[in-house]
Write a protein that binds this DNA or RNA. Structure first.
Length: 480
DNA sequence: ATAGGGTTAG
């Protein structure tokens, strides 16, 4: 059946020469998105005559990132043996990442084997991707096992891959697990500063600064020199753990010992003080760095702007924003997001919308964080039409809605308690499943209740069918 | 994809 399916894809291409071949990734991605998915004789809207390159393919895969099933369908279409194009290893890595995000375990492994048979990998990067997916799916043991077994797939462990697996575990908050692996294997890889920095950062991420200090001490005892990254990590850890006094002492110690503190150090301190509500100290440090000849970066400005939005006033944040522009800094998407959030939070929707227009005019594309944040604020304030308007804009643009977008918008459909909103929520739920996202049980139940309470029995039955299909068959069989 | 700084909610 699978063969029949793919064959019809390729034969259909011959007759599709009437339209000129789409030339850029946006056009191709939109063509793929606008074509129907489900039928067996589905005609893939692409021509084999398109001059495929790895860059073009990767760019399309990234555009289709939040529509995993279509992304993989596109990848398989080009990978079919009747097509002449051979995927690059980076395209394989992207496809593997997408399949793993869809919990399609079987697909992940068949892609890895396919990669190997084409002698394109799998590489260290491939294993880093899969391990990261395992770890964030709550399967750290599988991530470790994958690392220990990767040589069986033609990819030998080295210090870099060891550091990567430790980092993957730490970033998914499995620090105990990382530390265990580190102690077991540090002799085998003759670990370095990076290894220790990863572990120090791990303990800091879960606010266990005493453990981080212990590891720092141990690294010195073993003759491995901490560097500025180590100290910046530790400094950030104190702020994160709410140990403001220790952070300040550590910062002073860094200056006293003449370790060449840099823009990252200062940004950490500006942000740390600000979050702690110490706005004046944050400002003082910002001024101090300029005096000391360390130029603030865009990130430093972002930190200060965010802090002013949260702990001071949006208007003062706007002043800093205009100042940075005047000095010739180019605000990035984070700058705009932080400030738009500040304005929305203050109820200044009009000014927030103006700023979004300005960012577009300046050539800074809004990303899904921009949209998600705005959609959230609109929903909270019952501006459902505005929220839906932004959602539509995402769907037709370069930035497809992600899992968060659907969750935010579906929640938003409950604030007005209207029957027609329940129907929209149901449609959104159907769409998110079609795009490969797996809604939480909570979301299913909430939508089902909403539909039942508003007399939409028929629709709720459809949702129920969908839930049993997406919950049991797909996910249980393929879950990572 | 070998480490550190800005976006996330009460």
């Amino acid at each position: 059946m699978n063969r029949l399916f793919t064959k019809s894809l390729c034969t259909s291409v011959a007759g599709a020469n009437l339209k000129p071949p789409p030339s850029d990734s946006a056009a191709i991605a939109n063509l793929i998105l606008s074509s129907p998915t489900k039928t067996l004789d589905y005609q893939f809207p692409l021509s084999t005559k398109t001059p495929w390159t790895p860059e073009l393919v990767n760019s399309i895969l990234k555009r289709l990132w939040n529509h995993g099933p279509k992304a993989l369908q596109f990848f398989h279409f080009l990978d079919h043996r009747h097509c002449e194009y051979i995927h690059s290893s980076s395209s394989f890595d992207l496809a593997i990442d997408i399949a793993a995000r869809l919990h399609q375990h079987t697909t992940v492994w068949s892609l890895i084997h396919r990669m190997r048979s084409l002698r394109l990998g799998p590489s260290h990067k491939t294993f880093a991707i899969v391990a990261e997916r395992y770890a964030s799916a709550g399967k750290p043991d599988k991530a470790v096992k994958l690392f220990l077994n990767m040589h069986e797939h033609g990819c030998f462990q080295d210090l870099a891959s060891f550091n990567t697996i430790l980092d993957v575990l730490c970033k998914s908050k499995r620090v105990e697990k990382a530390y265990e692996l580190f102690r077991d294997l540090r002799g085998r890889f003759s670990v370095d500063t990076v290894t220790y920095n990863v572990i120090v950062n791990g303990w800091c991420l879960i606010k266990r600064t005493p453990k981080a200090l212990e590891v720092l001490k141990e690294m010195v005892e073993r003759g491995i020199n901490p560097n500025l990254t180590t100290y910046n990590t530790m400094l950030k850890g104190f702020f994160r753990a709410g140990q403001i006094r220790q952070a300040w002492e550590f910062f002073s110690e860094m200056k006293k010992r003449k370790c060449e503190i840099d823009v990252v150090t200062y940004t950490t301190v500006v942000h740390g003080f600000g979050v702690a509500g110490e706005v004046n100290r944050a400002r003082n440090v910002f001024d101090e760095m300029i005096r000391e000849g360390v130029l603030p970066s865009v990130a430093t400005h972002n930190a200060l702007i965010q802090v002013l939005c949260k702990k001071d006033s949006v208007d003062n944040a706007v002043v800093v924003f205009e100042e940075m522009v005047r000095k010739g800094y180019e605000p990035n998407v984070t700058t705009y997001n932080v400030l738009i959030r500040g304005l929305f939070h203050a109820g200044e929707f009009g000014r927030g919308e103006e700023l979004m227009q300005r960012m577009v005019n300046e050539g800074c594309e809004p990303n899904f964080q921009t949209y998600n944040m705005m959609i959230r604020y609109y929903s909270e304030c019952c501006e459902i039409e505005k929220a839906l308007g932004l959602f539509e804009k995402m769907g037709s643009g370069d930035c497809l809605p992600n899992l968060d977008t659907y969750n935010i918008l579906i929640s938003g459909m409950f604030v007005r308690k209207r029957s027609e909103d329940m129907v929209v929520a149901g449609k959104l739920l159907l769409e998110m499943v079609e795009r490969g996202f797996i809604p939480r049980k909570f979301t299913f139940n909430r939508v089902l209740n909403g539909l039942l309470l508003t007399g939409n029995q028929a629709f709720s039955k459809e949702i129920l069918r969908l839930q049993s299909k997406s919950g049991s068959q797909l996910t249980r069989k393929f879950r990572l």
